[in-house]
Design a protein around this nucleic acid. Structure first.
Lengths: 347, 347
DNA sequence: TTTGGCACTCCTGACGAAAGAGTGCCAGCA
DNA sequence: TGCTGGCACTCTTTCGTCAGGAGTGCCAAA
């Protein structure tokens, strides 16, 4: 049964699990007596103390001061999460609730907002979802609208009628009909193709000798290149930040401020989320592991979400390190799947 | 000199002003001795006490408990702001700094963000700016792009090349050329007109007998109506929320949470800002005056900003009730003007 | 009208004692 | 050898008390 990691006796494992469990519930250091009761086994506090001493020696728990109970360390959580966490799949009622909620939303943007609200609502922590990447959206059509001598408005319609506007500045002036021809040309050859592929093709064409290209094609390709080059700056949506104020470990106004500043700045959080994009499944940062000081007492559980096997973005939950990982992980996991599915339906 | 409000002796006024001033600085109740020193006049604390007693009777100040100093009440602030506040215009260096900062931004959206960052940065409180209303933007052109049987993408370009997308659903299917004709027609007759005016005209046309209208015109008008009807939901941009955590009176985690929830929800704040749109100048809500509980210990100073005499939106500052109004008001005022001017230049 | 004086109230911070929680260690027991 | 009860010890938390400080209100005198 227990494919126990090297040399941690079964009993110690169970105790670590119990301690983490209890600490998750009330955030107080757990003492030997409490743990004895918690554990249910017929063991005296003294025995528990011996094992706790071992766990402390291994660096899995520590006590804030001599006469306090023990608290899991980051290493303790890491071990717990990596080797002795067993996650049940989310119960079907919850899944149905999420699916229903998501099914009400129409646009990807709304879906993403709804997903982050769900994450925060269900976990009582902060939910975060990156906007779906457009990198692998399908090219549907493009239109060019001349606005002034040197400015052209490009409208790119992708996949499920997602629209993006780009303002282009051109050296020479293009007539409306020229632009019309260009867009017709592009729409014809690229419709239904993957945006990344379209871009690759464009680059290739621009490299090749231009002699055998007529004026119209030149225009078309140059403009399309401009449209595609400005990679949509990544962004994310957040909900339930204020839930984090409920946890005593974050009630310190100074920590709180650092945290909220990070949320507003977005840059650091985005960077962290980026790291999770290609993690192929649940990713967990515990406390200081993230490398960002403002997340010191926090953990982040993320999962990428994808459509048709293509990863579109990441979603997750940010909460105190003592969060109930076994509860949060299935929620994040399910939400990622369901968001992917919901995006797929609209597509 | 002093156009003193009925029956408040000059000296009492000066004392109230001093007290408010001092309280703004360190947030502690002000006692008679402190005030005596603060005031500079050669008056003994006992005298001060007598006058303070009068001010308390008038409801302008109150003491948290017997042996504490006095604190201005909401009525006290109201009186102060209404009748004995003299605001100097903002010094020209600060003005230049704001102007410069705003001049770097290109789009209205960026301008608004920059303005709110400036407000929060200069005042060390929270800055808030509503997005400019499009109600009176100028119609530049509209394009219709058919996407599927019943879905048409409408692109509305206004004023200084601001672009809005709308997805329309139509009963009957329109061909590309039909749509082209419709947009040509609309662009021809409405170019350069005020959006509100355009909408009014459209409504009128729809009322009139439709017999003398050809198919194309019908299409055009119906579609245009759809484009314009969905009034852009108002929104605002905020910056420096976390500055508010610095003030002890807001360090209570519970108050803080209510406040930040309100910021995230946006609805209530938006409603408040709405009330300020047509106030023709600086508007100040002090503490509970706003009617919203979460702003109990807070005040809000706002000013509408306008372009060519048309009010485009509101901006302001949210901070603790004890903020230095005489410093904040000129900042809000100047920023409103400068934002208006900056928007004008881009237009 | 202003002022100094005085008694009074209330908060605040310090100190110490007691209580409580938890630990480590040790000796005894199965 | 592993578990247990017991015990001394440590450290935090809580509570009450107490003194000090800040501020008030009132009164009588200038």
């Amino acid at each position: 049964m227990s494919d126990s990691k090297p040399d941690l006796p079964d009993r110690a494992q169970r105790m670590l699990r119990s301690l983490i469990d209890r600490y998750a519930r009330d955030g107080q250091p757990v003492g030997s007596r409490t743990l004895a009761r918690e554990l249910g086994l017929e063991l005296s506090p003294a025995t528990i103390r011996n094992v706790m001493s071992d766990l402390e020696a291994l660096g899995f728990i520590s006590s804030p001061h001599t006469s306090a109970g023990r608290v899991p360390t980051v290493q303790g959580y890491r071990f717990f999460v990596d080797t002795l966490l067993n996650v049940q799949p989310l119960d079907s009622r919850s899944i149905e609730k999420i699916r229903l909620e998501l099914s009400l939303e129409q646009t990807p943007k709304h879906l993403v907002e709804s997903a982050s609200a769900l994450l925060s609502g269900i976990t009582h922590m902060a939910g975060v979802v990156t906007l779906p990447s457009h990198e692998h959206a399908l090219f549907k059509r493009v239109e060019f609208i001349p606005l002034s001598e040197s400015r052209v408005l490009a409208i790119l319609v992708t996949g499920e009628d997602e629209v993006q506007n780009r303002m282009l500045t051109t050296e020479k002036q293009h007539s409306a009909s020229e632009l019309q021809q260009a867009s017709n040309y592009l729409n014809e050859i690229f419709a239904g193709k993957d945006l990344a592929e379209v871009r690759a093709t464009l680059l290739r064409e621009m490299q090749e000798t231009r002699s055998n290209m007529n004026n119209m094609m030149m225009t078309a390709i140059q403009m399309a290149d401009q449209v595609l080059e400005s990679k949509q700056s990544e962004d994310f949506v957040m909900a339930g930040q204020t839930n984090l104020m409920e946890f005593q470990e974050l009630c310190d106004i100074d920590k709180l401020r650092k945290l909220f500043d990070a949320f507003n700045q977005k840059r650091d959080i985005l960077h962290l989320l980026d790291q999770c994009v290609h993690s192929e499944g649940i990713q967990i940062f515990i406390g200081e592991e993230s490398g960002y000081q403002m997340l010191d007492e926090c953990s982040m559980v993320t999962a990428p979400y994808s459509v048709d096997g293509q990863i579109m973005g990441v979603l997750g939950v940010i909460g105190p390190t003592r969060m109930a990982y076994n509860r949060v992980i299935p929620i994040v996991d399910a939400t990622a799947r369901l968001l992917g599915a919901a995006l797929n339906h609209k597509e």
